[in-house]
Write a protein that binds this DNA or RNA. Structure first.
Lengths: 138, 138
DNA sequence: TATTTAAGGATAAAGTTTATCGTTTACTGG
DNA sequence: CCAGTAAACGATAAACTTTATCCTTAAATA
């Protein structure tokens, strides 16, 4: 995804296009899931005097505006990702990596609604385990 | 669940039985899901000079030892619960309440393993929506 | 290109969690 | 039941994280 497409995406979420924001989204496109410290380091590479507060402020507003999503991982700092089609997360407890996998949860949602009376508007699921690489390299 | 049963549960997890720990688990049995501030307030009622550090230390060790579980809720502080049979969480975005519901995720787990090569050992799922009470009282 | 408004940077303040350390308490074995 | 030991407690400092403030800079609009 190129810079102009990212800029489009920012504008689509009523956010001004700034170099710092471009870099944040670019980094997330490249690495998938990054926490705030990683993102701060990333942005500093191209903008050495970026303020940590800027990263905080941007993650907050980009998440509020629906461009990013925060993923809470048990025992770790939250990571952020660019919002895309609904999916669940795989978290490797050995190497810490996080992957997306598109598994349909509509059955779970329907079942939850039926049995609880809730109207469910969203869901978040994380499966924890060991990835193939970590299983083999030991 | 009475005090002796809670004490049993603590011992079963190689934890000494202290009044502060009893109160924490008792509160969680009563209310289901509480964050650290709520638990601190709870324990203070029966042990007015409990230290906040004690609550932190106990939640950490009880979680490590598998007696409690931490539930990360988007936009809120983590809540804790007494570990029980696998279940997923319902979170009402209006009133903030959290409920358990036992829905089988083994299909999701199997599918995730098949498609990713991971060996999945655990999962955490939260469905966000509006509970029946909040839907009606407005 | 000037104007307006939002965003950035620096840093202070607030809030949260962990570490330290001396004292107290729960457990064990006699 | 009591003494000894190790763990837990309380108080508090330190570390760490997040948010707020305020002045400067930059992006969008016409």
């Amino acid at each position: 995804m190129n810079k102009e497409a990212i800029a489009e995406n920012l504008r689509a979420h009523t956010l001004k296009v700034t170099p710092q924001r471009l870099k944040i989204v670019e980094s997330l496109n490249t690495y998938g899931h990054l926490n705030i410290d990683m993102l701060y380091r990333e942005v500093k590479e191209s903008h050495p005097n970026v303020s940590l507060a800027t990263v905080y402020k941007n993650l907050a507003i980009m998440t509020q505006n629906g461009l990013l999503e925060e993923v809470k991982i048990s025992g770790h700092k939250s990571v952020f990702e660019v919002k895309k089609a609904p999916h669940i997360h795989l978290h490797c407890s050995r190497c810490g990596k996080i992957e997306d996998i598109e598994i349909d949860l509509s059955y779970v949602k329907a079942e939850a609604e039926k049995r609880s009376g809730y109207i469910v508007s969203g869901s978040e699921a994380v499966m924890v385990g060991v990835c193939p690489e970590c299983r083999h390299n030991r």
